[in-house]
Amino acid sequence: MGVTAYISIILNGMLTGGVYGLFSSAFTFQAGALNFANFSYGAFIMLSMYLTYYTIAVWHLPVAAAVALILLINAAFGILLRKTVLKTGNFGTQILCTMGISMIVINGVSFFCSSYPRDLAILEKRLFLHPEISIGLIQLGCFGLAAAILLGFHLFLTKTWQGIAIRAVVQNREIAAVFGINTSHILDLAFSLSCCLIGVSGIMLMVMFPVTPVFGDYLQNLAFIVCISAGLGNMWGAFFSGIFIGVVPSLIMAILGARFQDPLLYLLFVLILLIRPYGIFTKNKNVVRAF
C-alpha cells in the first residue's frame, strides 16, 4: 500500500480518536480526580447514543431540545449515582454496584429497543485533500468539537471560581472545607459535568457509528486503555492518548490484518499496565498504589 493510503488511515484514526479522547477524559476525571471506579461508563454512553437516535430519528425532536434532554438525563443519573453508590467509599462495592447498573441499563435497553443495530443513516460527505486521501466532514466536525469542549472544560477548571473550587476539593477536601467551600455540592457539580461529557460523546458517536446494546462494553474497554496510557486524572493526556488509541488499531489492521486488532490492542494494554501503569505521559509515579 502506498504512502497516501497510510496517511489516509492515520488521519482517519486521529479523527475518531478525538472522540474516544473526549469520553475517556471524562472517565479519567471521574476515576482520577473523584476517586470513583465507574464501571457503568460504557452503558451510559450507549444509553446516550440510543437517546440520540430516538429523539432525532424516531420522535423527531428539534436538535437543541434533544441535546438538552440528553444532557439533563445524564446529569440526573450522575446525581443519582452520587447519592447512592458514591456514598460508600468501599472500592469493591463501587465496582459491583456500577457493574450492576451497567447490566440493568444494557438489558433495559435491549428489552425496550431490541438488539437490532440502530443507525442514524447519515451519509457523510468526505473532504478530499488529495485524490486518494479523504477525511469525513462529520468526523472532522466531531473532532473539532471534542477539542473545543475539552479546551472549554480546561478553561472552566482553571479560570472560573467553581472550577478552581473543584480542583481545591479534589486536592484536599478538608482544607477546602475549612475555606468555606461546600464540598459535597462541588463534587456533585463536578460529577454531573463529567456525566454531561458522557452525553455529548454519546451524541457524537451516534452521528458517526451505528449502535447496539453491547457497544458500551467495547467503548468502556477503550476508555480504560486510553486512561491508563495517559495516567488517571490527566485530562489532556487522555485526549492525546485517545488519538493514539484511534490510530494504533487502524495501523494494526492495515499492516498485520484485522484479525490481530483486538488481541494485540488488549495485550498492549496489559503491557502498559505492567511496565508503566502511571501513564505514558505522566511523570508522577506515586499514583498507583496510593489508590
Partner: peptide
C-alpha cells in the same frame, strides 16, 4: 465500526 482502514486496503 470504523471501516476506513479495511476499505483503504
Amino acid at each position: 465500526k470504523d471501516f476506513v482502514p479495511i476499505i483503504t486496503k
